[in-house]
Design a binder for these strands. Sequence first.
DNA 1: GCGTCCGTTCGCCTCTCGCGAATAGTTAAG
DNA 2: CTTAACTATTCGCGAGAGGCGAACGGACGC
Lengths: 255, 255
Amino acid sequence: MDNGDASKGRRIQAVEISCELLTALERFNSAGVSELAAELGRSKATVHSHLATLLDQEFVVKQGTEYALSLRFVELGEHAKSGVDIHDIAGEEVPRVARETGEVAQFMVEEHGKGVYLHKARGENAIQTSSYVGSRMQLHCTALGKAILSQFSRERIRAIIDETGLPRHTSNTITNSEALFAELETVRERNVAFDEEEVVKGLRCVAAPVTAGDRAAAISVSGPTSRFKGDRFHETLPELIRDAANVIEVNAVQV
Amino acid sequence: MDNGDASKGRRIQAVEISCELLTALERFNSAGVSELAAELGRSKATVHSHLATLLDQEFVVKQGTEYALSLRFVELGEHAKSGVDIHDIAGEEVPRVARETGEVAQFMVEEHGKGVYLHKARGENAIQTSSYVGSRMQLHCTALGKAILSQFSRERIRAIIDETGLPRHTSNTITNSEALFAELETVRERNVAFDEEEVVKGLRCVAAPVTAGDRAAAISVSGPTSRFKGDRFHETLPELIRDAANVIEVNAVQV
DNA sequence: GCGTCCGTTCGCCTCTCGCGAATAGTTAAG
DNA sequence: CTTAACTATTCGCGAGAGGCGAACGGACGC
């Protein structure tokens, strides 16, 4: 029973402050000492010495009087990605799905109870979506997320719901945990998850779970309701995306 | 006179430890408490509480008994990249250069006295190179680096050399600062920098400075000596890469 | 069973580091 | 040019944070 988080043990306050600082810099893109001090509810002196340390460590850059995230994070991010064993394989499959469907194809893995987009490719007719590589999303409201949740035990899902809740995005969002469990059951049966305008009105999505490697993952196609309906939505695309998931799983074995 | 780093002021030891921890995790991909404690020369207890904090903050993941960098860094990395104003423009130009030449094209910006690769595209005949998006390189030994250094004042270059040195990679590496200054003078005159097997034997490279936006940058083509010689190396490619740099600069103005 | 490795926890004691206040710079307005 | 209102930066103090050694508890491998 090694629970992921929530264990006891000591926490280092100074590290917490620096982490919050980096997170704030992510929101601001670039900010000065006073601005950040106000944001964190800390003294300017404290923020200043933290920034000086992060600058020394090259985790932050300083242009004039403003601080910003350093490109060091690009390097760390690449390493983190390469730690996901099926990352490269999915990287071949996602553009293929995008090309064949002409829509947006994406790949997501679970981390800390949230979904992280790791690949995104746009086909010929692809619409604009707000997700980007690295962005995080709750799992209950997307097809990708539901395809991931379907791989977990009831207790694990319960824990995730308790931590993050089931906030509503549109009138179709599932906000009731029993309804979610019921839907996940059908996902398991059909091996496909759907998003019928549960995040954004007019946007539908089909996703299949990818059960390979050490993390829960999923692959999807997204598009407008105008093209995502009838047989294409209920038969053609599910089959296509299940195949894509299968290709990833099969290739993963050989690694 | 706001010097980039090296200023006085207090440093937070706990933050330094966590930064070193993250850097160690980058090297190891994944590691346990004891391993990391040994690596940093710290007690297991200390490392443990730092990891617990970083886990809480979701900067690190724990699988079983091993810790690894979280995908959070992918998100932070994307934000850091988007902070480089010419990033997207260069992202269009690099693949074009790769396609037109059939070789490897790359884009680099300076940060903390080092060069960071931000784009890499491979043409039809592209060879394998060890660089990847996010990887860092000293500036004295690559064409990209020299194209970047050519944009700096003598004092700034002096400071960078003093900090990082001029380590040798091949018999062609410039390891003498006067020779470097002389070479940079010709780079400024011709607006192109060359790498004649100064990093890897058999690998040549042509780069042009990109002076737009808030950071020094450069764009390049790389290939084998067998194809990088004669007029192509000394005339055709320099002209092509200067044009590409120019396109980025012109497009940057419109932003 | 024992020995050895691991991760985790505990308590002590020091020196870190968060804070408020004072000091510099820097820009803007009068 | 002066004053005012911002900044970033530095200083000194004192509480409590946090680094450490040691003890503990679980997991393997003999």
